[in-house]
Each structure stands twice: as structure tokens, then as C-alpha cells.
Deep mutational scan, measured.
Amino acid sequence: KNAAQIVDEALNQGITLFVADNRLQYETSRDNIPEELLNEWKYYRQDLIDFLQQLD
């Protein structure tokens, strides 16, 4: 998997990933985040941060 796929997957589930103060953050109206997504975000944290910062 790559960062773009993970960001896309999150968006499809109503979750927006973004970077604030060099930390990976998310916004969602969901009550909870599936644990497998959280684990994936932790595992790919630096890739996601790098990818999202390139988009800014």
C-alpha cells in the first residue's frame, strides 16, 4: 500500500487525514475509527506525513 491509497481509503470512509505541527491528524464525523485503519496510519505515519505535506 502507499500513502495515496491510505488517504483515499480514509476519505471513502468519511475521514480526512492532514498534518498539523508535523503530526498526522484526522477529522471525521464518525463515532469511531476502525482499529485496522488506526494501525495502518501508525505503521505508515511518516509516509503519510510526507505525502500530505507535498500536497500543501
Rank of each mutant, 00 (worst) to 15 (best):
32 N>T: 13
5 Q>N: 06
20 A>C: 15
29 S>D: 13
50 D>N: 12
52 L>D: 00
9 E>D: 07
1 K>N: 04
49 I>P: 00
1 K>M: 15
26 Y>N: 02
49 I>L: 08
19 V>G: 02
20 A>G: 08
12 N>M: 14
19 V>E: 03
46 Q>D: 11
36 E>W: 09
52 L>H: 00
18 F>W: 06
34 P>L: 04
2 N>K: 14
6 I>P: 00
27 E>V: 14
56 D>S: 13
36 E>Q: 11
10 A>F: 03
47 D>P: 07
14 G>A: 04
17 L>G: 02
15 I>G: 00
13 Q>I: 10
3 A>S: 04
43 Y>V: 13
21 D>F: 06
53 Q>G: 10
30 R>L: 13
52 L>G: 00
29 S>L: 13
44 Y>K: 04
20 A>E: 14
33 I>W: 03
43 Y>L: 14
44 Y>C: 03
34 P>I: 03
51 F>Q: 01
7 V>Y: 14
30 R>I: 09
49 I>C: 06
35 E>L: 13
36 E>G: 08
52 L>E: 00
27 E>K: 14
20 A>M: 11
32 N>D: 13
9 E>S: 05
1 K>D: 02
17 L>Y: 01
4 A>K: 14
53 Q>I: 13
45 R>S: 14
14 G>H: 06
34 P>G: 05
42 K>Y: 14
51 F>K: 01
24 L>R: 00
23 R>S: 13
37 L>K: 03
23 R>P: 01
21 D>K: 05
56 D>A: 13
15 I>H: 03
41 W>T: 03
43 Y>Q: 13
22 N>P: 01
49 I>S: 02
32 N>L: 09
22 N>C: 14
17 L>N: 00
51 F>G: 00
30 R>E: 07
42 K>Q: 14
47 D>L: 12
52 L>W: 02
26 Y>F: 09
35 E>P: 11
41 W>G: 01
41 W>I: 13
38 L>E: 06
30 R>Q: 08
37 L>T: 05
2 N>F: 08
56 D>V: 11
30 R>P: 03
28 T>D: 02
20 A>V: 15
39 N>T: 09
11 L>K: 14
48 L>V: 05
46 Q>A: 10
50 D>R: 13
33 I>G: 01
40 E>N: 04
28 T>F: 04
47 D>C: 07
32 N>F: 14
23 R>H: 11
28 T>I: 03
19 V>L: 10
39 N>W: 10
21 D>R: 04
1 K>H: 04
54 Q>F: 10
8 D>L: 15
18 F>V: 06
25 Q>A: 08
31 D>Y: 08
38 L>H: 05
23 R>D: 15
23 R>M: 15
5 Q>G: 05
40 E>S: 05
40 E>Y: 05
52 L>R: 00
10 A>R: 00
1 K>Y: 04
47 D>M: 14
46 Q>C: 09
12 N>T: 11
38 L>M: 10
51 F>I: 03
20 A>R: 13
1 K>Q: 04
